[in-house]
Design a binder for these strands. Structure first.
Lengths: 222, 222
DNA sequence: TGCGTGATTGAACAGCTGTTTAACCTGGTG
DNA sequence: CACCAGGTTAAACAGCTGTTCAATCACGCA
C-alpha cells in the first residue's frame, strides 16, 4: 500500500516536475512568450493539465523560478571559491550539466523580474564577500566605495555575459550554448584580467576630474 | 501645383513617419511583442494602414531599425569625443532629447538582432579609435591585445547598462527613463573610473596563472 | 464490488495576433 | 467632367494565445 502510494505520489510529482523541467527548457530556449501548448507537448501532456497543476502560466513560471532558485542555493555551497583561475574552469565545466537552468537564468536576466533581481543580488553578495576576503588577504586593492565597486562589477560582468549570449547565442541547442559559453570565457577573460591587473589609465586625472562633479560617495547625502 | 504636390507628399510621408515614430516609442516601451493595433492607435490610424505602408510587422521594425540607425549616424559626427569627463555629461544631456530612440536601442539590445549587432559593432569601433588615440596621447595604457580589450569594454559597458535598465528601468515613462539614466551614471561611473585608474588586483599572479591555460592571443592560432 | 478522488484528456471558449480584402474618399490628371 | 491612383478605413480571415469545462480513465479505500 505504502509502496503503491509512494509510487503514485512519485508518478504524480514526476509529471508535474517533468512539466516544470520542460517549461524551464522551453522558456530558456524560446523566451517566456513560448506557448503553453509547446511546453505541454515537450512534456507529452495537454495544455489543460499544465494549468491544472500550476493554476496558470504565471504559476508555472513562478514554479520554474522557485526551482531554479532552489538549484542555485543547492549549488552555492559547492561553489565556495578559492580564488585561483582553475576554479573558474571548474565552475564552467560544472555549468555544462546545468545548461538548461543557466539558459533559463539568462532568459530571466533578459526579461527582468524578481528572479533576475534576486540573481544579481546574490551575485553581488558573493562578489562582495569574495572581494572583501581578497582585500583582507592583500590580493585585492582597497576601494573608495567597496559596495559601489562590487555593484559595478556585478552589473558589468552579468550584463556583458547576457549581451554576449543575446547576440551570439544559438539558444536552441544546449551543445551550441556550451561552446558559446567557452568562447565567451576564452575571449573575454584575458582582457578582463589585464584590466584588473594594470587598469586602463596611466594617471588619476580623469578620476579626479569626475569626482569634482559628484560628492564623495561615502561622505555626501544618503 | 508643386506646392500642393509637396504638401501631399509631405503629408503622406508625414503619416508613414508618424507611424514609424509611434512604433519606435511603443516598441521601446512595451517590447517588440507589442501589437500592430497598439502602434496604429498611437499614430491615430488603423492596423491595416500600417501594413499598407510597411508591408508587414517585420517591415515596420526594419523601417524603425533603419531610421534609428540613420539618427545614430547623424548624431555620430557631433559626438566626436575629446576625452574629458564633461563630454560624458554633455552626451547624456543630449540623450535626454532622444529618449525614445535610446529606449528603442536598449530594447534592440535586449532582444538581439541585426540592429543590436550593428550597435555594439559601432560602439566597438568608436571605442577602439578612442582608446588608440588615448594610447597614442599617453593617457591610456597599452594592452596585450587591444582589439580584445576594446571588445571586452564594449560588451561590459553596453551589457551593464542594458541590465541596469532591464531591472530598474520604468520603461513606460521617458521622464523616469531620464532619471534612471542619470542614476546609472552617477552610481557606476565612480567605481568604473576607479577601476580604470588603479585596477583591481595588486599583482600579476592571477593574470599570469590564467595565461598558462590559453596561448597568447596575438601569437597563437588565428 | 462499488465509491470516490485525482490525474488526464479533448473540445470549446473569448480574446488577441498579423494579414487580407473590399470599399470609400480625396485629390491630381487627361 | 470623367477617371484613376493612392491614402485610409472597417470588416473579416485564419491562427495562435491562456483558460475553462465536462468527460474519461486509473487507482486506493472501505
Amino acid at each position: 500500500m505504502s509502496a503503491s502510494n509512494d509510487e503514485t505520489a512519485a508518478k504524480a510529482g514526476a509529471t508535474a516536475d517533468r512539466i516544470r523541467d520542460a517549461a524551464i527548457a522551453r522558456f530558456g530556449q524560446d523566451g517566456f512568450g513560448a506557448g503553453l501548448r509547446a511546453v505541454a507537448a515537450d512534456a507529452d501532456v495537454t495544455a489543460g493539465l499544465v494549468v491544472h497543476h500550476f493554476g496558470s502560466k504565471e504559476g508555472l513560471r513562478k514554479a520554474c523560478d522557485e526551482h531554479v532558485l532552489a538549484v542555485m542555493r543547492e549549488q552555492k555551497t559547492k561553489a565556495l571559491t578559492d580564488g585561483t583561475a582553475g576554479m573558474l574552469m571548474a565552475q564552467m565545466a560544472e555549468l555544462e550539466h546545468y545548461a538548461p537552468i543557466v539558459l533559463y537564468l539568462m532568459r530571466s536576466l533578459q526579461t527582468g523580474g524578481e528572479l533576475a533581481a534576486t540573481l544579481i543580488e546574490q551575485m553581488t553578495e558573493d562578489a562582495d564577500a569574495y572581494l572583501a576576503a581578497g582585500e583582507a588577504a592583500g590580493v585585492v586593492l582597497p576601494s573608495r566605495d567597496r559596495a559601489a565597486r562590487t555593484r559595478y562589477l556585478a552589473y558589468q560582468s552579468a550584463g556583458g555575459m547576457l549581451l554576449w549570449f543575446t547576440l551570439h547565442g544559438s539558444n536552441t541547442d544546449p551543445e551550441e550554448f556550451r561552446k558559446s559559453f567557452r568562447r565567451y570565457v576564452e575571449e573575454l577573460a584575458p582582457p578582463a584580467l589585464e584590466l584588473f591587473t594594470q587598469g586602463l589609465l596611466v594617471d588619476r586625472s580623469m578620476l579626479d576630474a569626475f569626482l569634482m562633479y559628484v560628492p564623495d560617495p561615502p561622505a555626501g547625502e544618503r
